[in-house]
Amino acid sequence: MTVSELIFAYEAQIRLGIFIGVLVLFGLLEAANPRRKRNLRRGVRWLNNLGLVALNTVVLRLLFPAAAVGAAVMAEQQGWGLLNQWPVPYAVAVAATVIAMDLIVYLQHVMFHAVPALWRLHRVHHADLDFDLTTGLRFHPIEIILSMVLKLGAVTALGAPALGVLIFEVLLNATAIFNHSNLRLPRGLDRVLRWIVVTPDMHRVHHSVEGDETNSNFGFNLPWWDRLLGTYRDQPRKGHEGMAIGIHSVAQPRTAEWLDGMLVTIPFRGGTPEYPINQRFKEKTDDA
């Protein structure tokens, strides 16, 4: 059995074990040292947010049983993709995979804000009325499916090694939990960390109800793309304690925090009056 085949055989167990460990760790840390006062109790929010995670996990395993690591193994066996065309050192291929996949996720995230039909799906993530580690896990199943299709295409085109894909997937899940956690970091530590990883204070700006703030800080793992491509915003106007979380058109907990609202009402009913790209330009025009 090759290294790639071994990784594929144990990918689900590795990812699940790390996911549970990171979830428990940051759940304890944010409870011990919260950054913001909660707007809602955890019970209903966590039950429905984690219920959506369970649903998405089942859907993905049914539709894509081999997942992205399986696509990497197939690409290696068939000689598909850029990294399989040249004798690239394995460590370089792994590192290149993690960085390239992170850039692709950044660009995908921007696209889900830039296309109204995709924003309808993505606003399920933004409609959460509180901001904690479970916010980083709540995505509409159709968005998850589209993301996986894009990921499979990217892995195949890159010829990404299975280890690089596994490291990327683990990092993406872990940092999504970390940078959505309601965790207070010392200001000096946050200032240093946000040069190498997206921190909670950096990403929280992206969940502001204000359109121009929502349309910033798109990174999930590496913070470099926001800085390089002009979407970085250091702080929210009203500060982290004063900023409002969510989207203007979904203000009722019964809609924002229950599964039926996340699956049907938020993405498929009503227009997109809070569409962030348009709102950003409107605010700039009004300020001019």
Rank of each mutant, 00 (worst) to 15 (best):
F139R: 01
V198C: 14
A162S: 08
A127I: 00
I99H: 05
P223W: 10
W119K: 02
R184T: 11
T214V: 15
F220W: 13
R184D: 06
E143T: 13
I177V: 15
N217I: 13
H180P: 12
P161D: 01
L146I: 14
L185M: 12
L185A: 04
A95W: 00
N182V: 13
F112S: 10
E169P: 10
L189N: 07
M148S: 12
L171A: 14
A95I: 15
N221H: 15
Y106P: 10
V198R: 04
L137T: 06
F168Q: 04
D102S: 09
T97R: 04
N217Q: 12
G153K: 01
H203P: 11
M101N: 08
G188T: 12
G159N: 11
N179F: 13
N179K: 05
W195S: 12
H125M: 06
H206L: 14
S208V: 01
H203N: 08
T156G: 05
V209G: 05
A100N: 03
S181V: 12
D212M: 12
S216P: 04
R123Y: 05
D130W: 00
T97I: 02
S147G: 15
Q108K: 11
V98D: 06
L193R: 00
S216E: 00
S181P: 03
M101T: 11
V165K: 04
F168E: 08
T156K: 10
M202Q: 09
R123K: 15
M111C: 14
A162I: 02
D226G: 08
V209T: 15
H109E: 01
V149Q: 07
L133T: 10
N221F: 15
